[in-house]
Amino acid sequence: MATITQPVKTQTVATPRPPLSLARILIYTFLIIFAIASVTPFVYMVMNSLKTYGSTITNNLWPWPPFGTEALQFQNYPDAIKEAGIDRSWNIPLIYRYFLNSLITVSLTVAGVILTSVMAAYALANMDLPGKNWVFLFILATIMVPGDLTLVPKVVMMFQLKWYNTYAALIIPFLASVFGIFLMRQFFLQIPRDLFDAALIDGAGHLTYLFRIVVPLSRPAIVTTALLNFIWTWDSFKWPLLVTKDANMRVLAVGLQQFVQSEGGTETHLMMAFATMVTLPIIILYFFTQKYFQQGVISTGIKG
């Protein structure tokens, strides 16, 4: 497997770029159109979040100066927050509560996943344990179980554990990640064994070695696991919809969907403002860290 510290190889043939021909102009045109199509919905979202209701429904593409007379409607953001309602228990706007719920869920899940993955991967990669290959096979086999199959029993379990409508239901079932264990294990296997022997001479045990040497060395793998789990958890919708009931336990994705269902269907400009608030943090995070995202995705895709 390609280590994730290396840049992804995409151009292996070391010949100079061919000159521009008609075929290449066609290729560029096609690719540019495709790239525009990828981002247009997001541009549309941000633009419509700054228009009046009237301009969104008449598809006035640019209602602002110099072509129009409208001012940028920043007011849509506080309006959307107001429209979504108030969380009576904490006395803050519900949207803030959705943000907090998402942040609590995501940060605890990601931290937990990193911890359990690092520990399990270390045992699998660096320790001499009887039966560890079977354990690894078992862990890999669990990804064969599709999420739909276990959906209903897991929700029933949440009721029986009295976790329904609590953070525990949103977090605890996701505190282990096969992907995380797999990726970390691959990474740990590449750390030279000599380092461990040297640490041993200095009197370090497994735990000291793991947290003082292996973890700092594995930052790329840890960052990749953290980022991918971050967007997966941020994106999760079906599970939070099933295991939470009260408005103040909703995460952002569920809150947005409920908003679309009720007010947002009619008040497009406010819905777009809400959607922008949900999406923009992720887009900004992505642009700063996109290298890790792509390499993480590739390392899940190309195994062996």
């Binding site: 919708f237 569920v254 679309v260 959607a275 999406t279």
Partner: peptide, 8 residues
């Protein structure tokens, strides 16, 4: 977010 892009 899937919910956001689906809403758009």
């Amino acid at each position: 977010s899937t919910v956001a892009s689906a809403a758009i």
